[in-house]
């Protein structure tokens, strides 16, 4: 299941997860795409923990917003084959998780701003 960190995309993902479960396809894995770590840091974008809380599924990986995706798509190339692209690195990690390797999550898009710390403190998340 792919989503972006937007409320509308997450809400639609939630509906599809419900349908998948109704079709007895359980335990979907989540990819959060187009994360902007800076925006998350300043509380301007949903944080990955918020999204996981809402969807209640396992996270397979997080892909950052990366203009290399657009550049390579236009050239018929793939970021995963570009050694130095951040999104390619994230996809590489996802692939390694798929084949069963234990790859730690990069610390992309985990909010640590005052608001989220306060929320945690008062037990809101």
């Amino acid at each position: 299941m792919v989503t972006t960190p937007e409320v509308s995309a997450v809400r639609d993902a939630d509906r599809i997860i419900g349908l998948l479960e109704a079709s007895e396809l359980r335990e979907p894995k989540l990819i959060i795409n187009r994360i902007r770590p800076k925006m998350v840091k300043y509380g301007d974008m949903m944080d990955i923990d918020d999204i996981i809380d809402i969807l209640a599924v396992d996270l397979l990986g997080v892909i950052p917003e990366d203009e290399m995706v657009v550049v390579s798509t236009n050239r018929g190339e793939l970021v995963i084959l570009e050694q130095r692209s951040r999104s390619g690195q994230s996809y590489q990690n996802i692939v390694r998780r798929i084949v069963g390797e234990d790859i730690p999550m990069m610390d992309l898009g985990r909010g640590d701003n005052l608001v989220s710390r306060l929320k945690k403190f008062v037990g809101l998340k």
Binding site: M1, V2, T3, T4, E6, S8, A9, R11, D12, A13, D14, R15, I16, L20, I31, N33, R34, I63, V69, T73, L78, V79, I80, L81, G88, Y91, Q92, I94, V95, I98, V99
Partner: peptide, 29 residues
């Protein structure tokens, strides 16, 4: 079998399919 899906359109399914496919193939799968 891996199905790449989403609720909303345009969130990156095709990009993800292509990159995961290529990544697995470059591991010799």
């Amino acid at each position: 079998v891996i199905v790449v899906t989403s609720g909303k359109g345009g969130v990156g399914k095709t990009t993800t399919t292509a990159n995961i496919g290529a990544g697995l193939a470059s591991m010799g799968k």
